[in-house]
């Protein structure tokens, strides 16, 4: 800040460059350049999705000759029917929704409780917990994939529906630190007078959390819910480890990847599956994009 204001004096006063009309014209020109760049960027971002959508409607022969075109003459809706049955999409969708919902609930509950207790109370051992949480920032989850697998095996969480439990536990555990830090910064904004008056009214520690603190930070909890939804729905590595050998308990992503390994050239059917897997997140994003962006930015600022 200080350097910036100091250095502005270095430049000689050459403000009188150009008459107003020329300035206005050049501004118009610059706006044109800006819009051109933005349109190019928007096209690059959107085109792959639109291309995916049109690929998903092509015929077995047409898919290889379409090239860059987005137009589909004879939409083949049966591609969706084919992926629906071949990759067991209904089952995978139920599994994905189940994992996402349970993780969202578990993460919101556990991280908000811990963040509340760590913010409100100064109990012996608090500092130890804080240091441990901070240290986990330095340990990449990928490094613990192998030992965590064997931990789950000893807990009898490998095989059939129990693998779903392993996925939920591993991902819930992995989401703790980031969200606790995010929520702690919000609990810190709650004035202690509110807790004091709740205590005078006879509300207990847990009661105060449930009835007062939790509702007060609802916007932050919505952020956690949204980021969790996105992260768990899109998760690949953890479900791959635990579910790739459990055909009936796969998520959409894993079912789709495994389908692609079996039918390597049925790109139009794969594209239909990709559309099915992507649409829920895209729809939620379009409606709540402001909160997505705010949440992610806030997370980065806190981190």
């Amino acid at each position: 800040m200080a350097t910036a204001t100091g250095t502005t004096h270095r430049y000689p006063a050459s403000a009188a460059r150009g008459v107003p009309l020329a300035t206005r014209l050049s501004r118009l020109g610059w706006d044109g350049v800006r819009y051109a760049l933005l349109l190019l960027y928007a096209l690059l971002c959107l085109y792959p999705f639109l291309w995916m959508l049109s690929t998903s409607l092509r015929s077995t022969a047409g898919v290889f000759s379409a090239g860059l075109s987005l137009w589909v003459d004879d939409p083949q809706w049966q591609n969706y029917a084919e992926i629906w049955t071949e990759a067991n999409v209904p089952r995978a969708a139920v599994n994905t929704v189940l994992i996402t919902t349970v993780c969202m609930g578990a993460i919101i509950l556990t991280t908000s409780m811990a963040a509340y207790a760590l913010t409100r109370s100064r109990f012996p051992g608090r500092q130890v917990i804080m240091v441990c949480l901070l240290a986990t920032f330095l340990v990449p989850g990928e490094m613990l994939i192998i030992p965590t697998f064997y931990v789950n095996r000893s807990l009898h969480l490998i095989g059939d529906w129990r693998s779903l439990g392993a996925v939920i536990l591993v991902m819930t555990a992995g989401a703790q630190v980031f969200n606790i830090y995010l929520l702690m910064s919000h609990f810190q904004g709650v004035p202690s007078e509110i807790y004091d008056s709740a205590a005078i009214d006879g509300a207990g520690y847990f009661e105060t959390y449930r009835r007062i603190a939790f509702p007060l930070i609802r916007p932050a909890l919505a952020t956690v819910a949204l980021l969790t939804f996105m992260g768990i729905w899109n998760a690949f590595l953890v479900p791959l480890v635990y579910l790739s050998q459990q055909p009936a308990y796969q998520t959409l992503t894993i079912a789709l990847i495994q389908y692609s390994k079996r039918f390597q050239t049925l790109y139009h059917v794969m594209a239909a599956g990709a559309v099915i897997a992507l649409v829920p997140v895209i729809v939620v994003f379009i409606f709540l994009q402001r909160y997505f962006i705010r949440g992610l930015t806030e997370g980065a600022m806190k981190g």
Partner: peptide, 15 residues
Amino acid sequence: GFLPVVTSIAVVSLA
């Protein structure tokens, strides 16, 4: 511009 970020990169990679 933000749309690709929220989509699953594993699924997008398939396409």
